[in-house]
């Protein structure tokens, strides 16, 4: 099962190493990890997407993270209402004929073309994991030359109600 865990840490040197090392040592499988400063100086936040076998391992992930001296707070936000976003840059092969098609495909994703070359365009898209996966699938037939993704970062929603409908989204909306 896939869990989304946020980890608030003291911004000490080596702290990222400490966290990723812990995942290696305990054989917790990381899908993605993002890290950046928070609103408080000296404190950073990581968002980790981790694949675990079962509840017991999920609990171990949280407890082992919590044991770290530099870790201030660990939250499994998988079952909470969250907004999660990832940014992807996708370089797609183009021909004069396909360029317009690609434009049509990416438009509903609110993606933008940020670089144009003779035979390719680079597209920037922001969204949750599924949205980005969906767009990549649609672009794949044209030939993806390069792909770079940031991994997901997430926040719990300000209000924990009225979420269920928001979670659903249509790529064509």
């Amino acid at each position: 099962m896939k869990r989304t865990v946020t980890v608030t840490v003291l911004n000490q040197s080596g702290v990222l190493n400490r966290i990723t090392g812990l995942f290696t040592k305990r054989q917790f499988n990381i899908e993605s990890i993002t890290v950046g400063p928070t609103e408080t100086e000296g404190i950073s936040k990581m968002t980790v997407i981790v694949h675990v076998e079962d509840e017991r391992v999920a609990e171990q992930v949280l407890k082992q993270l919590n044991k770290q001296v530099d870790v201030l707070k660990v939250t499994d936000i998988t079952d909470q209402a969250v907004v999660s976003r990832e940014l992807a840059l996708i370089k797609v092969l183009t021909t004069p004929q396909t360029r317009a098609e690609i434009n049509v495909i990416i438009e509903p994703f609110r993606a933008t073309i940020i670089d144009v070359a003779k035979d390719s365009v680079t597209i920037q898209v922001v969204g949750n994991f599924e949205k980005i996966e969906a767009m990549i699938e649609l672009l794949r037939p044209y030939g993806i030359k390069e792909l770079s993704r940031t991994g997901q970062t997430a926040l719990t929603r300000g209000s924990q109600k009225q979420v269920t409908d928001l979670k659903q989204y249509s790529i064509l909306k």
Binding site: S13, G14, G21, Q68
Partner: peptide, 16 residues
Amino acid sequence: VIGITMPITKHNYQVR
């Protein structure tokens, strides 16, 4: 030494 001992210490420090 910090890298080597990170997984085998309760905590470690390098004094900067």
